[in-house]
């Protein structure tokens, strides 16, 4: 457990509701947890339970209706540069090359081309895209595009990397490779990560702790520590020790699905 290390993010009694013409839609209810420096957190939960909402709140894109989110004890009040968010879609600008896309955060901060070039080369190397700097994103495979998106998020040197189902749109094999690459990247960087995923295997392989949310409105039903030794190896996916974590996560997820089927998309409350 990482209790000894410093608290990076503190989510306290977070309640988020969307006011719609048809009524109020509660997305998150009473969510509280802490994220420690250098920790890898996975968020899992039924579809529509508010995982993206939670991540957007952590990025400062969405103000909480009630409660508070603090980064190093300072409440997050607006878009937060210390948080690097990667969406389910890579969201690379099609008129910029891979290198130019990764350089965007640096450019907006007014770094000189020379400074940028060096940093971009490092980042490309980090995500294994060296040699693709002058390619346009349209030419990249889904997995490569998503790695470029991760590199762009890392370019701003965020204290916490927020990943919203970054591999959701990839095929199973690529997805597994990406998870392995992310594992290696994280073990190298030791950056704090909060990642939403639908795959319990991915969560078990990558996370230090898995936060399990109930169906909407999302409440935390479990925070499950993954007691698998670090550094981990992607081959662990086949290991019985990981399989038992996976079983545990599945069990927890089942509990969170309310009997009257919370997955109904009906926005009425």
């Amino acid at each position: 457990m990482m209790t000894s290390s410093e608290v990076l993010l503190e989510i306290e009694n977070l309640y988020t509701a969307f006011i719609e013409p048809e009524g109020t839609l509660e997305a998150l209810e009473n969510v509280s947890f802490k994220v420690f420096q250098g920790e890898f957190i996975c968020l899992i939960g039924p579809s529509g339970c508010g995982k993206s909402t939670l991540l957007r709140t952590l990025a400062g894109l969405l103000p909480p209706s009630k409660g508070e989110v603090r980064l190093r004890s300072t409440p997050i009040k607006g878009p937060e540069r210390a948080a690097g968010l990667v969406f389910q879609q890579p969201m690379l600008l099609p008129w910029r090359t891979v290198a130019e896309n990764i350089a965007l955060p640096l450019e907006l901060r007014g770094q000189s081309p020379a400074e940028r070039q060096q940093r971009v080369a490092e980042l490309l190397e980090m995500v294994g895209l060296t040699g693709f700097e002058t390619s346009y994103p349209q030419l990249l495979s889904g997995g490569m595009a998503q790695r470029a998106a991760i590199a762009r998020a890392l370019a701003q040197n965020p204290e916490v990397l927020l990943l919203d189902e970054p591999f959701g749109s990839l095929d199973a094999l690529t997805r597994e490779r990406m998870a392995a690459a992310l594992l290696e990247l994280w073990q190298q960087l030791r950056r704090t990560v909060v990642m939403v995923t639908h795959s319990v295997e991915e969560a078990a392989l990558l996370a230090d702790r898995v936060v399990v949310l109930s169906s909407r409105p999302g409440r935390i039903i479990h925070i499950i520590p993954v007691r698998l030794a670090r550094p981990r190896d992607p081959n662990l996916l086949l290991d019985p020790s990981l399989q038992s974590v996976v079983r545990e996560l599945r069990q927890a997820l089942k509990q969170g699905e309310s009997p009257d089927n919370g997955r109904k998309p009906s926005p009425k409350t």
Binding site: A59, G60, R81, F87, Q89, L104, E107
Partner: peptide, 22 residues
Amino acid sequence: DTGFQQVFRLLEATRWQRFRWL
């Protein structure tokens, strides 16, 4: 795309930067 707009918001782009780069 609202996704692009969020990328720029997240990077705390100024109005001018959003105009120029997006």
